[in-house]
């Protein structure tokens, strides 16, 4: 025993040597910048010679709270986060389907996971083409749909001459006019549609992503005897999902909710940068993008640090809320 302890003690320098590169990397690229940005959040740092670095206390924080753009971009971020629950539900649905004994299961799982391992920029460019207002497949499809639905209202010639059918013809013409008058959205070029467009893309990406894998792992851990017992008790599919699958997946769901909320508050930068450059009229600028704008376009690095730290506080608070209420809601021991 003593020899083992001595041997372990002898290993300390070697262990430290191996840990050093990682630890030094962490210090240089994570810990020190984080501390530095915290200090800078209380300064007027602008990276210009003409403005000397000064300690401004809580001025940046006060300015931020009264900055209408911060609240606008916070609103944009929150809007994009509305897609998270839909994405989670979609992942669960997909995971349940892919946990069945299907032919070509591995191929399906791989296909659904592909967007996650594909370069984000490539995906965003693809979606930009899909959203092309006039030649994109989405609007082309919608136009055909509207046209088809509109043509349902075309009254046959023999009906037009019948006076008794006038109210019916009128209704059919109204139906026709309604569908043919519908205009397809301009998607990324429209102030009203740009955010929903990015949100839909986010849902699509999230459904087949890591959340689906987590749910698949969770589903494989549900003891089969629980389903057998439920079946003996006469439970249907819905009852089995509600009383067996869902409670058993509660820890997984809790983890996914927490991580998605964190990711949602931090996210939106890459999509907006590639697809809309934050436009039109800054309607797709998120908090993450605002940090970039302030820091690297306007060079107000002190203010940008403040936004980053306020964002951290928001994320931390939201995680605490999730933790406090999520534990009981999902009945999880953490």
């Amino acid at each position: 025993m003593a020899a083992q302890i001595t041997r372990r003690a002898d290993n300390w320098p070697v262990a430290l040597l191996f840990l050093a590169p990682n630890f030094l990397g962490f210090l240089a690229f994570m810990a020190l910048p984080v501390i530095f940005s915290f200090i800078m959040a209380f300064t007027n740092w602008q990276m210009t010679e003409s403005i000397p670095l000064e300690w401004v206390g809580f001025d940046n924080f006060k300015d931020l709270l009264t900055d209408p753009r911060f609240w606008q971009f916070f609103g944009n971020t929150a809007y994009l986060m509305l897609g998270i629950p839909v994405g989670i539900a979609g992942s669960l649905f997909l995971a349940i389907i892919l946990s069945q004994k299907l032919r070509g299961l591995v191929m399906f799982r791989t296909m659904f996971y592909l967007p996650t391992i594909t370069s984000g920029v490539a995906l965003f460019i693809l979606w930009k083409a899909i959203y092309n207002p006039e030649f994109g497949p989405l609007n082309t499809g919608l136009e055909s749909l509207f046209e088809a639905l509109g043509s349902l209202g075309n009254a046959p010639a023999w009906l037009l001459s019948r006076s008794w059918a006038a109210p019916l013809v009128q209704t059919m013409q109204g139906w026709n006019a309604f569908w043919t008058s519908l205009e397809t959205p301009d998607w990324l070029l429209s102030i009203a549609w740009a955010k929903p467009a990015i949100m839909f893309m986010g849902i699509w990406t999230a459904i087949g992503g890591t959340n689906m894998l987590l749910y698949l792992a969770g589903l494989s851990n549900v003891p089969p005897e629980l389903y057998e017992a439920a079946e003996i008790d006469g439970a249907g599919r819905w009852a089995m999902f509600r009383h067996v699958t869902w409670p058993q997946l509660a820890p997984t769901t809790f983890f996914i909710v927490v991580m998605s909320a964190i990711g949602g508050l931090q996210g939106g930068f890459e999509q907006a940068r590639v697809m809309t450059a934050g436009g039109p009229a800054e309607s797709t600028v998120t908090l993450g993008y605002y940090i970039y704008m302030k820091g690297f376009e306007e060079y107000q690095l002190g203010y940008a640090s403040t936004i980053a730290w306020v964002m951290f506080v928001l994320i931390f608070a939201m995680t605490l809320v999730n933790w406090k209420f999520g534990k009981s809601a999902f009945d999880v021991e953490v």
Binding site: E134, F135, D186, P280
Partner: peptide, 10 residues
């Protein structure tokens, strides 16, 4: 704007 994008893609 939408026509510009459509033309560029076309």
């Amino acid at each position: 704007p939408s026509e510009e994008q459509a033309m560029a893609a076309a």
